[in-house]
């Protein structure tokens, strides 16, 4: 007993919050919540493609006119993204280390598929975001968009982009991973912040499912709309 490392309540020096398991969870939750907001806003903004070129391009102009504020938002999002990924990887390795010997018989009773693949759907999202930025923001993968980008013709960029089957396929697969990721994220955020009780736990799981479906339908509708010629250049 005497070699044991025991902290007593009165002599206990609290560990810095972000180093504790709950502290890290809270950081994942806060940054994750911000991305739930971003993903929703980004979808609603881009769905204006169905309202025609003027609407969508006007929206792009409004965003661009934010000037310095746009950069503040971009850099904050990038920072939150880095924090979210850093702790996700750290937690993943900690959690793996917590069970050095695996079960011979491994079963899943209550856990959902999406909860079990969070790290993989997350890494898929990370790779997708890198590609997405190179594709539409930095114009690295398709330099031919440069003229459209200069005129802020987001509408044509989207249609030209999604007219390519390969590009559309990549976006659609990525959105499936996104839906799986947010499906668990919605319940998880509320649970982590302690905003649940016995009644709300199953309800929030349901809300997570519905939200994931909305996100999936919303984002898929754009490449599908282009491929089916519902949204066209002229």
């Amino acid at each position: 007993m005497d070699t044991m490392q025991v902290s007593t309540m009165c002599h206990h020096r609290p560990v810095t919050a972000y180093k504790t398991s709950i502290g890290m969870k809270l950081l994942m939750g806060i940054t994750g919540f911000i991305f739930i907001g971003f993903v929703t806003g980004h979808m609603i903004g881009n769905l204006q493609v169905f309202l025609g070129a003027e609407k969508l391009n006007a929206y792009a102009h409004t965003l661009q006119s934010l000037g310095a504020l746009l950069w503040v938002i971009r850099l904050s999002l990038l920072t939150f993204f880095a924090v979210h990924i850093f702790f996700a990887i750290k937690l993943y390795f900690q959690n793996r280390a917590s069970r050095p010997v695996k079960y011979v018989k491994e079963v899943n009773v209550e856990s959902t598929f999406s909860s079990r693949i969070m790290i993989w759907s997350g890494l898929a999202m990370f790779s997708f975001v890198v590609y997405h930025l190179m594709h539409f923001t930095l114009i690295i993968t398709n330099p031919e968009y440069a003229v459209l980008k200069e005129n802020l013709d987001v509408y044509s960029m989207m249609i030209v982009g999604f007219s390519n089957y390969w590009i559309s396929a990549v976006y659609m697969v990525a959105m499936i991973f996104l839906a799986l990721h947010v499906n668990h994220a919605v319940f998880s955020v509320f649970q982590t912040f302690g905003l649940t009780n016995a009644k709300w736990i199953p309800l929030l799981r349901r809300i997570g499912n519905i939200y994931a479906l909305i996100i999936l339908a919303g984002y898929l509708s754009m490449p599908v709309g282009v491929l089916l010629n519902i949204i066209t250049l002229h």
């Binding site: 007593t8 009165c10 398991s21 969870k25 959690n95 069970r99 209550e110 909860s115």
Partner: peptide, 23 residues
Amino acid sequence: QRVRAMIDQMDIEGFGNCTNFQE
């Protein structure tokens, strides 16, 4: 103090982190 003390000890012992699996 209790919640801090117990969670710190839990972390020292090498338990994993909760990711809300509900298992």
